[in-house]
Computed example of a mutant assay.
Amino acid sequence: MLYPPWLDPYDAAPFIAFSTSHMISIIIIAALVLLLFLFRHSLRRLSERSSRLMRIALAALMIGCEIVLQLWYVYGGIWSLQTSLPLELCSLTLLLSALLLLTRTRWLYSAVLFAGIAGALMAIVTPNLGYAFAHFRFIQFFTAHAMIILALLYMTWVEQFRPGWRSVAGSMIFVNVAAVMVYVADVLLGANYMFLRHKPNTPSVLDMLGPYPVYILGEEILALVLFTLLYIVLFAIPDRLRRHQNKRKTKSHQVHSKIG
Results as ranks from 00 to 15, higher is better:
177 V>C: 11
193 Y>N: 07
144 A>E: 04
236 A>D: 10
195 F>Y: 09
175 V>A: 12
154 Y>M: 06
202 T>M: 13
203 P>M: 00
148 I>P: 02
220 E>C: 15
206 L>T: 06
168 V>T: 08
235 F>I: 09
180 V>I: 11
169 A>K: 08
180 V>H: 06
164 G>E: 05
207 D>K: 09
237 I>D: 10
152 L>W: 03
197 R>I: 10
180 V>S: 03
232 I>N: 11
157 W>S: 13
147 M>I: 13
149 I>A: 01
223 A>I: 15
151 A>M: 11
224 L>I: 10
191 A>F: 06
163 P>G: 09
199 K>R: 15
142 F>N: 01
143 T>R: 04
166 R>D: 11
173 I>C: 14
211 P>R: 08
205 V>A: 05
166 R>C: 09
147 M>K: 05
180 V>R: 08
192 N>M: 11
222 L>K: 12
142 F>E: 00
214 V>L: 11
209 L>Y: 03
179 A>P: 00
221 I>R: 05
228 T>D: 14
199 K>G: 14
238 P>H: 07
176 N>H: 06
196 L>C: 04
201 N>Q: 15
157 W>Q: 11
144 A>F: 03
141 F>P: 00
197 R>E: 14
166 R>E: 13
174 F>S: 01
180 V>G: 02
213 P>K: 02
149 I>Q: 01
190 G>T: 09
206 L>H: 00
184 V>S: 03
192 N>F: 09
239 D>W: 13
219 E>V: 12
228 T>R: 01
237 I>P: 02
174 F>D: 00
141 F>K: 01
223 A>W: 01
172 M>K: 04
199 K>C: 13
163 P>C: 08
208 M>R: 15
153 L>M: 09
177 V>T: 14
216 I>F: 02
212 Y>D: 09
172 M>V: 08
147 M>D: 13
226 L>W: 04
234 L>Q: 08
239 D>C: 03
205 V>F: 14
156 T>N: 15
212 Y>Q: 14
203 P>E: 01
207 D>S: 12
157 W>I: 00
175 V>Q: 08
205 V>D: 04
234 L>T: 11
165 W>A: 07
235 F>Y: 09
227 F>D: 07
